[in-house]
């Protein structure tokens, strides 16, 4: 087995309940996460992200399959015997303990001598910049500070893997951005493998080394943010990651003919049949009538640096173009224009 693998999930399935009320939370998930990796599980609500994380933490036992940690089978190991710590979404800080006592809890339970605990706590509190709050109680801290305590508490025992279940979802946008880079920094500094759960695709794209996209208990695609964005495996991934236009087309003579009759010259893996074209809004440019596919502007949304135009094609399909606001003179609703399409992903329909 590859010694660089931190977590290896093999055909993990999880069914909650029995009989008629059984819910399949995880179908058959296989996944290898490298040591020192910032890995993100991304997917819509209810797709099984938390369930997979809880299986890795040990709070749930998979119904089928096995989980290995650095080569050891931990499928049936209780959470307190796994060198894995969790940052809970609700933080779950101990209200009766000070910040320092919270952070030192894991080390104390591991039976570390008191002076060693004190030293480690001081070091980790410095890492998350909370030194001056050591003697406060959790409820005397702001949400962002509590978040850092939760992080510090999970980092202090120096786990092999840190699990983070939507740790930023309770923070406001500004704090969230701040914590994103903070998390990234902590991960680089500690070298600990992070498994991060989110349903925010932007967060996933900016923070991760690799992303696993999940839907309905299945892992659809695993890859770097670039791969996932530029080369989505299917329509679901393309739709979930960033905004995407979908156009139906048919393959003929190595080219794709779309509904309007226009023909696009794209790289093809298939030679015949129906395909779906996934086109990012920034790959659509607006050009004068006659020099591209005829379109009519039906909606404009000014977004600051960018403007989003919704255009109707002749066959009735809609396509969204994202154009830099300052480089074009603004188009109005009702304007007849033409569009040109850059990079296109061809998906099997």
């Amino acid at each position: 087995m590859n010694t660089n693998v931190a977590v290896d999930a093999q055909n993990v399935g999880k069914i909650y309940g029995i009989g008629n009320s059984a819910v399949t939370a995880l179908g058959d998930v296989s996944l290898s996460i490298q040591k020192g990796e910032f890995f993100t599980l991304l997917g819509p609500s209810g797709c099984g992200k938390t369930t997979l994380l809880r299986c890795i933490a040990g709070f749930e036992t998979p119904t089928s399959g096995a989980i290995h940690l650095s080569g050891r089978d931990i499928t049936h190991t209780p959470p307190n015997a796994r060198p894995v710590n969790t940052v809970f979404q609700s933080y779950a800080l101990f209200p009766h303990l000070t910040v320092a006592q919270n952070v030192g809890f894991g080390l104390k339970m591991l039976g570390k001598p008191a002076d060693e605990v004190t030293k480690s706590v001081a070091r980790v509190l410095a890492l998350v910049k909370l030194e001056e709050f050591a003697d406060r109680f959790p409820q005397q801290l702001s949400g962002g500070q509590q978040q850092r305590v939760a992080l510090a508490r999970a980092l202090a025992p120096e786990p092999e893997v840190l699990l983070l279940d939507e740790p930023l979802s309770a923070l406001d946008l500004k704090l969230r951005k701040e914590m994103q880079s903070e998390l990234k920094r902590l991960q680089t500094e500690t070298g600990i493998t992070f498994i991060f759960v989110t349903h925010d695709q932007e967060e996933a794209l900016t923070m991760s080394d690799r992303i696993g996209v999940m839907s309905r208990g299945a892992l659809l695609q695993v890859g770097t943010p670039h791969e996932i964005y530029e080369n989505p495996a299917d329509r679901f991934v393309a739709d979930f990651i960033g905004e995407t236009n979908f156009l139906e087309g048919t393959v003929a003579d190595g080219k794709v003919r779309i509904g309007t009759g226009d023909v696009l010259d794209v790289a093809l893996k298939v030679q015949t049949g129906a395909v779906t074209l996934a086109i990012r809004p920034e790959q659509v440019s607006i050009v004068p009538t006659g020099s591209g596919i005829a379109a009519k502007i039906t909606e404009t949304t000014y977004m600051g640096t960018d403007t989003h135009y919704t255009l109707a094609l002749d066959d009735g399909s809609d396509i969204v173009a994202r154009v830099q606001s300052n480089t074009t003179q603004a188009h109005k609703v009702g304007d007849a224009v033409a569009i040109r399409i850059g990079t296109v992903q061809v998906l099997q329909s």
């Binding site: 307190n80 894995v84 969790t86 809970f88 339970m109």
Partner: peptide, 13 residues
């Protein structure tokens, strides 16, 4: 908060 039990269990208690 029953989550605290999980937190403790996660932290080797």
């Amino acid at each position: 908060d029953f989550k605290l039990i999980e937190a403790g269990y996660d932290l080797y208690a």
